[in-house]
Nucleic acid binder design. Structure first.
Lengths: 148, 148
DNA sequence: CATCATTATATTGCGCACAATATATTACCT
DNA sequence: AGGTAATATATTGTGCGCAATATAATGATG
């Protein structure tokens, strides 16, 4: 039956917005949007990375990333430089303050879980199924790791 | 550890976008975006509904819904009328072609599942956990029903 | 019944997402 | 080397989401 409550996609869509809404007040404190926070998280793992690499990881294209990265650059959190050996690619490097921001970001996920009143087990369960479906349907680029 | 692959929210965010990307070519065929399709789905269940009621159901505010509904009205799928007994509220009614569109929409979810190569069981599992978390964290407004 | 609060929708502005296209650089081929 | 394809990023345009604010109608209170 074609009914909203039966649509898994709507539940995911609504829940991901809901979680992001819980992130918002915390991210406001460090002047980041949720997608900007994700981009930095990728860079905190490994640095430098090209726009392409960030895009594959976040599943976003240059139409989304280029302006987002320019905003992060305006905030002096990253630097965008053309690779000299191949002028097509733009490499993203963290500035000192971009690196440092990780310390403030570290406490955010726990606070979000608390404000949403959900447990790690519930989130992990959800994450594992979601990652499985992402691998099956898309050009799966999420590796399977442990927990938060 | 603050790592992308450990973030349940990223998995949900990426998966919901991925599913919507699988909806897109099918919805293009009936000239709808995914949020427009959701709004119509709510109206196909129960009609007429106010902007407020649609917003509670979809968890969207007037800043999102007003322009979306105007676009649906331009496409002659709905009609927006001020309630005479209370000129503040706008009631949304389906036009004949808006009602009829449901017939074409009925086959879409099955096609999406097929193109994503996922089973009903996987989606149901995901949906049930997501609905549970939505109820816990938000002002839960999803009822628990059966399957698709 | 005048005032003030409340409610419902609309408007504005910003930042994504994504399709389509453009631009510039490199790789390939003969 | 010259021409063509492939690659990487940027640009443009449309449609969300959401915060903040505006507008307009109704309700409540003295």
């Amino acid at each position: 039956m074609l009914q909203l409550d039966n649509q898994a996609c709507f539940a995911l869509y609504a829940l991901s917005r809901e979680i992001i809404n819980h992130y918002r007040p915390l991210l406001d404190g460090i002047d980041l949007t949720y997608p900007q926070y994700l981009a930095l998280m990728v860079l905190w793992e490994c640095q430098p990375q090209t726009v392409n690499q960030l895009g594959e990881r976040l599943r976003l294209d240059s139409g989304t990333l280029t302006p987002l990265l320019k905003r992060l650059e305006q905030k002096k959190l990253i630097v965008r430089t053309r690779r000299s050996s191949d002028e097509r690619v733009v490499e993203i490097t963290l500035t000192p303050s971009g690196k440092e921001l990780k310390n403030k970001a570290l406490e955010i996920p726990a606070k979000v879980m608390q404000s949403m009143n959900v447990t790690m087990e519930e989130l992990s369960e959800l994450r594992i199924i979601a990652q499985k479906l992402l691998e099956k349907s898309g050009r799966g680029c999420l590796s399977e790791t442990t927990t938060d």
